[in-house]
Every structure is written in C-alpha cells, then in structure tokens.
Design a protein around this nucleic acid. Structure first.
Lengths: 579, 579
DNA sequence: TTATAATATAATAAC
DNA sequence: GTTATTATATTATT
C-alpha cells in the first residue's frame, strides 16, 4: 500500500534529496578518488592535470561532465573536472551539493522524541515525521541514521567507560547482572521522552492495568509504557506514549495504601498497588511542530483512561522487572510496615495448560466487572511446552496478548474518523472512544490472530518491518534473575481486597486466562495461551513483537490496530497538527 | 553453491561488536542524571538527551527490558542460550561475520575495470575476479550489485541534468540527439578502461578489421573494441580489451593517407583507413592485483595482431556510427583534400539473399589471402527476413559474425593450456597462438550457430546470460540519422588500392559475404545477411548481444569461445597473476 | 576542533 | 539481479 510508494519515493533519495536544488551530482565516487589520490600513487593522478584542458576542449568528454548540472558549483570541482586520465575523473567534480541544512531546535526536540520511541522508523513513519516537522524525507532518514550511529558510539563509549550500564543500543535492557537497585535513567532517550525535571528511576515494565484498562508495552524500543519512581517528588509515575504525545499519571507514595508483589515468571513480577485515591493525570503540552519547541511540559488534566477507570478503580497492576519492582515496593514499604508478600515462583518449564500457580489468584475490582471478559478458554498453543529452550527463544513468538483497545478509539477496522475532541484535559471527560468493548465483540476477532511466528502487527509498517530483524536492537539480556524473587514488604492499609481483577490476569503465564484486557472475552481459541508464554520469556516484555509506532490515527483498521496500541485510549488527537 | 552459504550466514551484525565486556557494574544511580537538564531549559533541552548525562551515569536497566525489538525473525538469533542475563552472548557468534570489509584501492581499480567491461559478470567470472583480487566471491558479487545500482543512479541523474550526453547505462552509445560531433567520453567506465591522459572522443564501433584479423565488439557493454580519436595527440586509436587487459594501436593522423567512407546501413558506416606505415602498438602495464594499483600505463610493444597482420596490412576498416565516423574522416580530411566518398545506402528491408549492393565491392589485401578460410558454407538462418521490425529488435539477435579466433590461442574446445609466454612487447613477436585458422576448420563449425534469438555465447555464463536482455543497457538511441549518410572527404595519397579485402566484407549487409573476418569467406547463404541487420539497428554496436567477459582462459571450449573474443589473439597472458 | 548534515559503500533482505 | 534499507565510514561544514 501506501508504504510501497513511500519506499519508492525514498529511493529517490539521491535524485531529489536533500537539497532543494536539484543539483545533484553525484557521482562521487569519492571513495575512489580518495584512495587513489591519497595515495601515493604515482601514476595516473599526475597527469591528470593535463586533462583539465581537455575538459575544456572537448565536447563532452568525460564523465560527468555533468558540470552542466550545476553552474553554481564552481568551487570544488571545477578544476578537476577533467580528470580524464584517472578513472575517477568523475569524482572530482562531484560534490558540491552539500547544502547542509540544519535541523532547527524545535525539530530536534521532536526528532529526539521520535527517536526515543523508535530508533528506526519505517519509511511511512519517517514520512509522517517529515511532514509533521516540515523536513524532507531524505533529511529525516539521514537524521535517524546519524542519530543511530551517534547513539551507538555513545553506547560504546559509555560501556567502555562505565562498563555495565547502558545497554547496547542505548536501550536499556535490564539490569545487567547485578543491579539491585532501581535502574536509573540509563536511557537518555527515555528521559527525554518523559522529560521530568527531577531525577527519576525507571522501572522496566511491560504491562499496566487498572480495572479493565490496560496498557501493554508494544515493542522494545517503543517506550510507550514507562513506569518510574521519582524519589524527589516521592511519587510513582506511569508514563504512556501514544500518538506522539505523552500521558502520565502520578501516584504519590502517600496514597499507596497497599502493595503486593507476585512473581510471575523468571525475572518478571507483578506489583499491585492499591491507592487511597485516584492518581493525578497529566498530558503533555507540546508545542506544535512549528512553535516554541522545547516547551514540552506536563499539564494536569482529567482521567484519560477508558471509561475513566483509573478514577474508579484504585488498584494498579504493573508487570515488569521483578528486581526493580521489588525494590520499589520495598521502598514504599519503608513508610510503614507492609505485609503480603507473595512469592510465586512458577516452574520455568510449565506445562501448557498448567494450573494457575499458587498465589496468583486473580482478583479484580468490582467496578471492572462489567468489563470482565468471560468465557475465555485457553486451549493452548503451548509455546511453553517447548520447554526451557523457549525460554530464551521467545522472541520469535508473537504476542498474542491483546484484544486491545484501538488507538484513537477506532473500533473495528475502519480508519478512525477524527477522534473525539480532546476529552482529555477536561476532568469531566466521559469516555467516548469507540473502543471495542465486549458489547461489540465483532470488532475484535480473535480468530484473526496471526500465527505464532508472525509478528507483524503494525498495519502501517507491516510489510516493511517484516524484515526488521534488527540485530542491534536485540539485546535480550536475560537478566536471569533466576527463579528467585525478591521478597517485598507490603503494607496494607485498606481499601480493597488485593485480589487482582480477573481480567488483567497478570499472573501471566501459568494462568490460563489471557491478560488481554477489557474486551477480551472470548472464546475458546487456543490462541490465547500466548500470554503465558510471553511472560515466561525472560523479561517478557521484550518479546512483544509489535514494533511500529503508535501515533496512528486513521491508519490501518482492524486487526493490526488491536494488536498494538492496545489500551491507549488516551486523548486521541489532542494534537491536531500531529495528524 | 558456495554463494548461498555466504549469504545465509551473515546475519547478525551487531551482537558482538559493541559490548565486549559483559561485566556490569552497577549502577549508580539513579536519579541523578535525569534532570540534568533542569537547568535552564525547563524541559528537555535538546542536548540533554543526547546523551551526555546518560552516558555518564548509566549503569543499567531501564526501559526496554526486553530486548529485542521484535521477535520476528528469529532465525538467527538463537540467542537463547545462556541464562545469563544478556543474551547476546551467543548470537554474537553466529553472525557477525561480515564485518564490512573494504575494498582496497587496488582492488577498486581492477573492479572498476572489470565493471567497465561487463557490468554483470557471470558467477564464473566473478569467481575468477575474486580469486584474482583476493576477495570473497560474495564480496565481489555484492560489489557488482552495488556498482550497478550506483551506475544506474548516476545515469539517471546525468540524464536528467544534461539531457543528452551520457547514455543511460553509462554506456556511450551514440550521440543522443544532436551531437554532431564525435561523441566524447560519455562513459566514464570507458574512459577508465582506456585510461588515456588526454581527452578523447569515442567513436562507437562494432567491428574492426585489418587484413584477416578482425575484432568484433562482442556486446554492448563489453567495450572490448573501442575506437577513439585524440585530438590532442592527433591520432586515432583502436583499443581492444581482452583477457582483462587492454591493447591498443595508435594511428597518427599523419600516417593516414587515405580514407573512405561507405554507408553500411542506417546510421552505420564503414570507414576504411589506409596508412602509410603500421600503427604503433601498446599493451597495458597493469599492476599485479596486489601491487601498486593505480599504475596502469600503456607500454609500447610489437604488433599483437594475429600473424602481425597489422604490420603487413595497412588498411584498417572500422564499422561503426556513421555520424561519428564521417566526422572523424572529415577531420582527417582537413589535412588534405580527400576524395572517394562512397555513399552506399542500402535499402533497409533487404531480402535475404539480396544481391550485393552497388559500391560495396569487397576487396582485400593480398597478404591475407593465405589466411582465407575456404569451403565454409553457411546454411543460413535468416534473421534478416524478419523485416523492419527487426530494426529495433536486433539486440535479441546474435551476432553471427565471426568465425573467430580463440582467446588465448585455444583452438577447438579444450581449455587453453598456459598460453604462450608474452610475445607481446617483443617487437619480433611471431604469432604463435593456435588460432583456429582455415587450416583447422574444424575448430569452428558454423553449423553450431545458435538460433537467432539466442545470443548466449559465453560458455561460462551461457545459461545465465540467456535472459540478459538488460534493458538498461540497451539503448539504441535511434539516433536515426536516417538513411542519409554524411559525405566524407577522403584523401588518397597512395599505397594501396582502396578496395577492401574481400574477407572483411564490411560493405555489410547488402553484400552477401559476411563481415566475418578472416575466415569468412564464403558464400552465398542468406545467413550472412545478418550483418546488415545488425548494422541496421541504430548504432548497431549496441545491438550486439554477446555480453560476457572475455578473459576466459580455459573456460568453455568450442562454440562459445569462437563467438566472442573473436580475433583477439593479443598477447595472451602477459599477466601471469591475472591468471 | 567537535558535532552533525551528507555522501558513499558494504551488506542485507525481500522480490 | 533489482530495490530499498541499514550500518558504517568518510567528508564537508559550521
């Protein structure tokens, strides 16, 4: 589809490239010449000079001659032009074109954010970015290229120096081997994305649910779900990136009345937080592409979760790094003695339809009941069955997780119409988004689940991403914390029964019911097992396949959408310009 | 074959590179870093993201957790392995292999030359090149691929810009639309191949004969026969590329005592040059693959034509672009008034066995008589019969021309044994090459002529080449000069009767006798008409189908060989290392 | 000189 | 073998 075109267009790179001025030349070959020249080499080069003359004389001698193309260029090439003698004659002339545009500070801010979200945007995505920022596609492509190179360098450096820290590509995998503490902001991109003024500690996580509202980290680099603790401000924060903008809810330590930690799979745990009151919601105030750039700020707003569940449901379940979560809970516990420590350490070689592991009793709030998916049956494809080998090979599997909410409330498959005007920001926001709900089962057919091996989900980038193996981004640091899970003190002050909502099933893997959030209802198909598997794999989240960027409004309908961008119903479109 | 393997193997690039030290340290902490920015800019100033901060501090984890961005392909990455935290340990091993090698300047020089000769060498050829240059086959393959892509881009560009000049594939076919003058060097590859220090003007040509020695351009891109004029040095040059090395003979304007121009077919003409003395011969001094690369130079040497005919026969017949040739002759004529203008404009729809056209009286020198092949009979496939439609479709036809001389003197079909030591360079060179001569008619059986549509000739690449239509290289720029042929002034100073040797029959098409060189003689059959056809096509030269590289030593025997590399008996192997 | 826009090329991967 | 894309290496620029 569209993609193809873009791709093609991109190809034009050279032709139209950067510069408006068609100039082009190219030829280059720079390399060729460079080498020769550099060299020492005696022969050919020398004589060249003579050639110059030739160029003048002849009708069109050599190569490029292209001189025609640019009058302006005089500088460089002029002389050499002739180059007749040496093979590279071409080269000489080449250059010139380089106009070297400069990204504006504003653009830079956005670019960095996009980069933080996805280091290698697809052509389609690049195009959007380009349009949004008013840059040429080629320019954007190059920017990302260089940015990746830069990141890599930095990573390399930091590693050499610091040793551990920053993972390879600037991604922060997980705590290398021994990072008992919360991982700090190792990822500059992430910090940039979150843009907090206070220091924060990132909590690697893959899934967050509040009532039937759920958010699943789509892909490794997507940073569309980030949890962090700010000791300074004494609060926990759930950051969500959707449609190019950020949303977050802050939970002051003080309102956490109870916590519970459950070991989900090796290295992965489920932390449940019970609050005494709803968190505080924020959305980003980002400057329209063209105006005051660096001004991104957090602006307080009303509950942007679907049905405002976060206001109604006071239990938050976060699946993420066991170590990190345990650490967080421990810290919270400091304030008061906690209790309720649930170490559930499922065997790593679970049998496909294993029974729910002990201590993993799903529980959910009353409010969410209406959203409760029911009748889920898992027949199980058992990824798990493969045994330990799967443990690390999960990346090949796709995350079946989800039965998700569509991005901008785009229900079934049609492109989303212009989403409801920003409900966000307005406290009284009533959820309007046409999220596929149980009521509308058709919007999401589980039958559509792609086969396990497939992981293509982003409708917009599917074709292109297919080949995106991208080794460099693939660091799965198994962080095998071993099965052992840190104990956590939990304090329970009240409110609600700590049993997690059934819908969220964070217990993951051993539990037969899919983690799929609210709309998940449904049926029997074996496909539902996937979750268990996913979680089982190392950090679990890493294995989530969905790659592409969210931000898509109308884009692909149906299936693709439901897969990623799961539960975001955040304010769709509050940024008109972002398209 | 091997190739497949190589390709497959490569997949993981990154894993190992970056992080060598697995160790990790710890982290430090946390928060600190993030807000750094706090500084002046409220939000995230662009810079911060970058890294600075992060790089310093970051120990570890964070976000992503997961690792890899997507499960997808899993192939390679087994990764799984160790439980240790970071996965990459393993995968590292798998791939990595291809670390981005860099071709050396020396290799580049050779590669460019090979490329100039043939843009798409066959696998066999690539293998040879690889061995010669010490590169991996895969590497060579990729180099050619990329080089082709580059050439295409450049061509595209140049075309857009300059319009005329450089033909599509960098080939110089003929003067685009209005180039009345000699086509200058539009083809950088060609110039690189010829490597003259002075500016030159290429004369598109397809066939050259001197006595019974004949050279036919094998394929469009082969550049194995290039004629050019160097105004600076005031000489005509016939360049021949064979076995990876170049040979040339220079004809100073001064020694041209007579010229004659005959129109052969639309756009194609035959220029006959009568000299007052033999030309000067040169061979390339190319550096052995491993040593001083750019050192290719022309070294004077003795006559390298078969039987040293160029020393004995002073008449040179060149078939090529009518316009260009006419222009050349005109220039030569400037020196003295010429005469002898023969405009023979055969009908373009010749009937298969048409009678010889007027004015096309074949003539040949006495000397060559002894080489005259005799008794050849051609049964004649008539390609020509197809009529005008063939005019432009000629490229699909094969050049029947030839009854050729084998490359390194390899007669019939067996692989050539090590060719005779360089006879070249030694003035007294006596031709030793076992060229299939009339004496050994069996070595070449005309009966083997492949069917008209096939043009596959290179034994090594035959199968592969079959489909080589190669649109991009096929520009027959119609240059439709119309049937009209430019008149040419000829000056005749003496020496010999201008009547061309019968053997060479350049008169082409209307003449029943084939242009086939020395052994051609022969007879009546309609098959001989092909020349007319070939020539008839636009520039003619472009239409010659034989694509592959010459250079073949022992490679295919028999038929294939005789087709291309026709009369090259140039010094075989004067470059030992080149194999 | 550093940092970054551009360019060029090796290598891939999907057709 | 072609096209598109990425990782790199280099160059040019500011």
């Amino acid at each position: 589809m569209a993609r193809a075109k873009e791709a093609s267009s991109s190809s034009s790179r050279k032709s139209s490239p950067i510069r408006d001025t068609p100039e082009g030349d190219d030829n280059n070959e720079s390399s060729s010449l460079s080498s020769p020249s550099s060299t020492t080499s005696p022969l050919t080069p020398p004589e060249d000079d003579s050639s110059p003359s030739s160029s003048c004389l002849l009708p069109t001698p050599d190569v490029a001659e292209s001189s025609e193309r640019e009058p302006e260029s005089g500088p460089l090439r002029t002389k050499s032009a002739s180059g007749s003698s040496r093979a590279n004659s071409l080269d000489a002339k080449d250059k010139e074109k380089r106009k070297r545009s400069r990204v504006t500070p504003e653009q830079l801010v956005h670019l960095e954010r996009y980069f933080a979200m996805d280091r290698s945007p697809t052509a389609a995505r690049r195009k959007e970015i380009s349009e949004t920022l008013g840059m040429q596609e080629r320019q954007t492509q190059i920017w990302f290229q260089n940015r990746r190179a830069k990141a890599k360098l930095q990573d390399g450096k930091s590693k050499h120096r610091g040793g551990v820290g920053a993972g390879v590509g600037g991604l922060v995998d997980l705590p290398p081997d021994v990072p008992p503490e919360l991982s700090a902001g190792f990822d500059s991109n992430l910090h940039n994305l979150v843009h907090e003024n206070e220091p924060i500690s990132i909590i690697p996580c893959t899934e967050l649910s509040v009532g039937s509202w759920k958010r699943i980290a789509t892909a490794v680099n997507r940073h569309d779900l980030v949890a962090y603790v700010c000791e300074t401000r004494r609060c926990l924060t759930w950051f969500i990136y959707s449609s190019g903008y950020g949303f977050k809810m802050e939970i002051p330590f003080e309102i956490v009345i109870d916590t519970k930690f459950t070991n989900a799979s090796p290295g992965t745990g489920l932390a449940s937080f019970t609050l005494s009151r709803p968190p505080t919601f924020y959305l980003e105030t980002s400057p329209p592409p063209g105006m005051d750039p660096n001004q991104r700020m957090w602006k307080r707003c009303g509950d942007w979760t679907e049905d405002m569940q976060a206001t109604k449901v006071l239990r938050h379940d976060l699946v993420g790094s066991a170590v990190q979560l345990a650490h967080v809970l421990r810290n919270l516990s400091i304030h008061s003695a906690g209790s309720e420590i649930s170490l559930h350490h499922p065997s790593y070689r679970p049998t496909p339809s294993s029974s729910p592991s002990p201590g993993m009793h799903p529980h959910h709030h009353p409010q969410q009941h209406h959203h409760q998916p029911q009748g889920y049956v898992q027949s199980g494809h058992d990824y798990i069955t493969s045994g330990s080998s799967d443990y690390y090979s999960h990346e090949r599997q796709r995350s079946y997780s989800t039965g998700a909410v569509l991005m901008n409330g785009n229900a079934g498959g049609g492109p989303s119409s212009n989403p409801p005007p920003s409900n966000i920001g307005s406290p009284g926001y009533t959820h309007i988004s046409p999220i596929p709900s149980p009521n509308n089962p058709n919007s999401l057919q589980y039958s559509d689940y792609p086969p396990p091996t497939t992981h293509e989900l982003d409708s917009s980038s599917a074709s292109k991403r297919d080949r995106s193996y991208r080794p460099d981004q693939d660091y799965r640091n198994g962080l095998s914390l071993g099965g052992g899970v840190p104990t956590t003190t939990t304090r329970r002050l009240s409110y609600d029964d700590p049993s997690p909502s059934s819908g969220s099933a964070h217990s993951t893997y051993s539990s037969p019911s899919p983690p799929v959030s609210h709309q998940s209802y449904q049926s029997s198909s074996s496909a539902y097992n996937h979750w268990g598997t996913t979680t089982a794999t190392g950090m679990g989240m890493a294995s989530l396949p969905l790659p592409s960027l969210i931000h898509g409004n109308g884009v692909g309908g149906g299936v693709a959408q439901r897969l990623y961008d799961l539960h975001p119903n955040p304010p769709s479109m509050h940024r008109p310009q972002l398209r």
